[in-house]
Design a protein around this nucleic acid. Structure first.
Lengths: 135, 135
DNA sequence: GCTTGACCTTGCCATCATGGGAAGGTCGAC
DNA sequence: GTCGACCTTCCCATGATGGCAAGGTCAAGC
């Protein structure tokens, strides 16, 4: 199977398949005489694993760790769980950050008439809300 | 005032001050004979505006729009409000995405013993959860 | 056999906001 | 005069992905 088919069957673009190979996430597969990469079910399976991990927001470095554990028969599930929990904590942190931004913006938006007049609490909020962070 | 002081007083790095100038967010200021940029209170104020907008997650393009409105006496507050509301919607979308990731992960983590044994529902979930997206 | 179109190859550039570092000029204090 | 702190410009890197270009390959149809 050529890269295009492996890509279609895994839901990863051909470009990304090559990229993952260059990152070492995917082993370098055999080539035809013309240099075409040849894939099998095994690689498609790995690509799907990578795609699902990406869909859950894992970084490439975390995925590399998960892949290594996945392919290691004597892994400890605790190691997997640790990676997943760290990622959940990271998601939590980012969700909190964005929620705080959203709350502040909603307050400002709520105060803004949003009409043809120039007065705008949103701009006032951006312009007046205190000096540098640690000063 | 040199760039270092303007940076310190606005909470933006000197590097970013130059970058904002190159993007056109900040006007090119006067220079000393030696080529040092000279800033005044006005520029520090603008830099603080930019920093606060960044802190609220606005992109540079959105900040450019906000700055233009801020500096335009005959603006319509409705234009400002539209930018802010679009950004809130964007934050909402991203928060929802991450929350969905988090929920899925929490389900998997909840099922994982997290001990020294290799069996791991997290890896199983990544490996088995269906084929390509639109197939 | 030749053409055509779909596919493959590598490699470079772009995103977005930011930091790091190099190489060199300037300024103030001692 | 020297030293350290500051400034200048320019290039490179991030992380995951897309786009494009130039060129090779393959299968199908004529």
């Amino acid at each position: 199977m050529n890269i295009g088919e492996a890509a279609a069957r895994s839901g990863v673009s051909a470009k990304m398949v090559r990229h993952y190979e260059s990152l070492g996430l995917l082993p370098a597969v055999a080539r035809t005489d013309a240099g075409y990469r040849q894939y099998g079910e095994r690689e498609v399976h790995t690509l799907r694993f990578i795609r699902r991990a990406r869909d859950l927001g894992f970084s490439m470095a975390e995925i590399a760790g998960l892949l290594a554990l996945w392919q290691k028969p004597d892994r400890a599930s605790g190691d997997v769980k640790r990676i997943a929990e760290a990622h959940i904590a990271d998601l939590d942190r980012r969700i909190d950050e964005m929620t705080a931004m959203k709350r502040t913006l909603e307050t400002l938006v709520h105060c803004c008439h949003g009409d043809h007049r120039p007065d705008c609490p949103i701009l006032d909020g951006l312009a007046e809300a205190g000096g540098p962070p640690q000063a």
